[in-house]
Design a protein around this nucleic acid. Structure first.
Lengths: 195, 195
DNA sequence: GCATTATTTTAATCCAGATTAAAATTATTC
DNA sequence: GAATAATTTTAATCTGGATTAAAATAATGC
């Protein structure tokens, strides 16, 4: 057995597997996706996936953790580079959409959190809630620095994150559409925030 | 508001079943929902559901058809009553959210369309696409009558419908939150449309 | 009340797809 | 180029919830 963190081949293949799984889950739904479907994309047999993951539940869990990491990275970068609240929101949306629709995508929609085992479910919920809370605090910051009009940050956050999370539902990998999404979505979603 | 045969005992119970199923699917995910879960809410045994529905696939299908009908009714009413494009958009959002968060709700998130059997899947996709197309044409009408600023109606439609469709993901039946959603969401989602 | 129909339960079976163990292959090390 | 470790496959088993048939109960009409 390899020391997982250092073994590049193992980690590369595992990453490919998570992306293939995310694609399947988004396109075929959870129940409509068998391990065979995921394995086929990789040119493997379903049983081979068990070398990388304990079971299907863990596969889903890791897809969700990965989705969370990608979201956090986009937000980190936006906060680092943005000038004010509104600018950070727009950057976050752009960076995140860029990943979602690009090479590192797709990102799994978290539709099956409740069927994860308790520890995994709680972990994913924590990640998810922390992300929402961070986004709301960016909105709050924007209100305070005058770049965003006063609003209910909870509801506004729900609205924007909802539109964002729904993207994988209709986006199917078309590069032209991807460009259009990255270009226009941030503007569309943040237009209503201006004072 | 066709009440049709829905006042028979059979239809009433079937309606209750669909609402219970929608609630389970939204809260526990599709794979996390057994027929027993749905039956328990109704004080029945899982096998009893087969009196109302051929199988689980049909249960999901009917949840989605019902979601489509509710959406269409809200849109019909908004078009009937609205003054201009923007006003119709706002009314649609309010009417639809009112149903989603009210007594007739919840409405199932369509997460498992791909695992429906072909005829059902195609039917739901048709309904879903028609609904999106109608919404886009309302946006277009708003642009033409000057109530909405020129925009990419496809993308703007995707954004607004995404935020709307995501609501059942975080809304859990709290009446105070429901009031807040119905009150604020339409404004939040349409603020960016004004010229 | 009695016959008929509607609804629900009990008690099984069924089955697709997850999971596993062992064997086979492929890569790596020295 | 053996020896060892990493990866994948083959060929089963296992399993939980879906499904079904028949029997039991409740409702309705006459």
């Amino acid at each position: 057995m390899a020391t997982q963190a250092s073994d590049t081949r193992f980690e590369l293949q595992k990453g490919r597997m998570l992306r293939a799984a995310a694609r399947c889950f988004n396109e075929k739904g959870y129940s409509g996706t068998s391990l065979k479907d995921v394995a086929n994309i990789l040119g493997l047999t379903d049983a081979a996936l068990y070398y990388y993951v304990k079971n299907k539940e863990e596969l889903v869990y890791l897809c969700y953790v990965r989705a969370g990491e990608v979201g956090r990275e986009s937000m980190d970068r936006a906060i680092r580079e943005g000038r004010d609240g509104l600018d950070i929101v727009r950057r976050y949306l752009r960076y995140h959409l860029d990943v979602m629709t690009g090479e590192r995508g797709p990102i799994a929609i978290m539709s099956e959190i409740p069927s994860l085992k308790p520890e995994h479910r709680d972990r994913v919920l924590d990640i998810s809630r922390a992300h929402s809370a961070r986004f709301e605090s960016i909105l709050q910051r924007g209100i305070e620095d005058g770049s965003i009009a006063p609003c209910n940050v909870r509801m506004t956050g729900n609205a924007i994150m909802g539109a964002l999370n729904w993207v994988p539902k209709w986006f199917r990998g078309d590069a032209a559409v991807a460009a259009s999404v990255v270009e226009e979505f941030p503007q569309i979603l943040s237009a209503g925030l201006e004072p």
